[in-house]
Amino acid sequence: MTTLPTSTDRKLGLVIDLDTCVGCHACVISCKGWNTENYGAPLADTDAYGANPSGTFLNRVHSYEVQPANDAPAQLIHFPKSCLHCEDAPCVTVCPTGASYKRVEDGIVLVNEADCIGCGLCAWACPYGAREMDAVEKVMKKCTLCVDRIYNENLPEEDREPACVRTCPAGARHFGDFADPDSNVSKLTAERGGMDLMPEMGTKPVNKYLPPRPKDRDRSEDVDILAPFLEPVAAEPTGFLGWLDKALTTMPGGKS
């Protein structure tokens, strides 16, 4: 059934902290690894060792440069992007077969790969590029929020969160229930002004992005307070190097 549920019991999703992300791509790799070995069809790579490698990924990290208008220093912002598990997910309603669906119990958007005809319309409907057609399996792949980890009682408790969150060395990714106002993700969103991507698309994303803190001033001219105590660097060479400099300068052609 590809009509959307009017509400979901829980709203599981991610908070991604753009202030903390260092752009290491560890989440990309752990996602690819987990989702190739577990839920659904593996994520294919084509021509992996050739001239034109291409592959399916459910999470990708872009990097943007933001240049403020007031000539303040530019900021480099690493920007992980995966499915936002939208409340008003346009990818679900376009599906002709019912393969795409949003779960009533936790709001996760999933694809039933056995029903997917690979028409690609859900990827067309997604403004975020969160869905990719697998080049080998010919079915649509997307982030499952690691549905096979978060409820998996065979895993130690600390591993029952999405692979990307579990692996992030910077603590830039947080997983939780947005329907609960006291959850870690709800609190982070409230404290740090968590934002939606392309709110004008009306998709009501569940995942929130925490904006990077602005750089307060230009530090490029700053000098360490200990600098005056450091041994001065000789501007003119002395000793053997001084003699060599003079000798070479007096040689023909040395003046230039």
């Binding site: 791509h25 990309v28 990924f57 990708r60 990290v61 872009h62 990097s63 943007y64 440069e65 933001v66 240049q67 403020p68 208008a69 530019a74 900021q75 480099l76 992007k81 904006p211 602005p214």
Partner: peptide, 10 residues
Amino acid sequence: RGTVRAFEPP
């Protein structure tokens, strides 16, 4: 917060 430019693709 300023002009956004794609710096590096993923």
